[in-house]
């Protein structure tokens, strides 16, 4: 399990030991799970209540499946920690945050100043991802 370098919310990182998606299905006591890019996050939807941590792996930064995984879980109401781990560059941070990740565990430690700059990149956003709680530009334009 990868410890997060960055937490995008208050409170400590989740500490429950993670198991694979296969093992999670078999182990009714597990409260933390790791999802690989090719795995379907929707199999977890029936178990969101007992989950404290979902770790979504990014073996390669060019593989964007984890972004969909995260949104799907948050859209379904998952409230626990959602951690991105693996090949994560500083330039992905805002996109991860917008898809609902609240903990980031990059394989290579990121520079603190660069993190600060990156997280402040976008003054506004065009889309409603819903899961990041941000009002999109179209809502601001129409007083919503």
């Amino acid at each position: 399990m990868a410890d997060p370098q960055i937490l995008l919310r208050d409170g400590p990182a989740a500490t429950a030991p993670t198991v694979s998606l296969d093992a999670f299905a078999a182990d009714t006591n597990a409260t933390a799970v790791v999802i690989q890019p090719g795995e379907d996050a929707r199999v977890l939807l029936a178990h969101l209540d007992r989950l404290a941590l979902v770790e979504v792996t990014f073996p390669a930064f060019t593989d964007g499946r984890g972004f969909s995984t995260a949104r799907i879980l948050r859209e379904a109401g998952y409230k626990g920690e959602l951690r991105a781990s693996g090949d994560i560059g500083v330039d992905m941070l805002t996109h991860l945050q917008r898809c609902g990740f609240d903990a980031i565990a990059p394989k290579d430690v990121l520079d603190a100043d660069q993190i600060k700059t990156a997280l402040a990149t976008w003054p506004q956003v065009y889309q409603a991802t819903v899961v990041d709680g941000r009002k999109p530009i179209w809502a601001l334009r129409h007083g919503q």
């Binding site: 972004f67 917008r98 898809c99 956003v125 991802t129």
Partner: peptide
């Protein structure tokens, strides 16, 4: 155009 610009889910298709 606005929807697809910096859409966070679809930048590593």
């Amino acid at each position: 155009r606005q929807w697809s610009s910096f859409h966070p889910e679809f930048l590593a298709l």
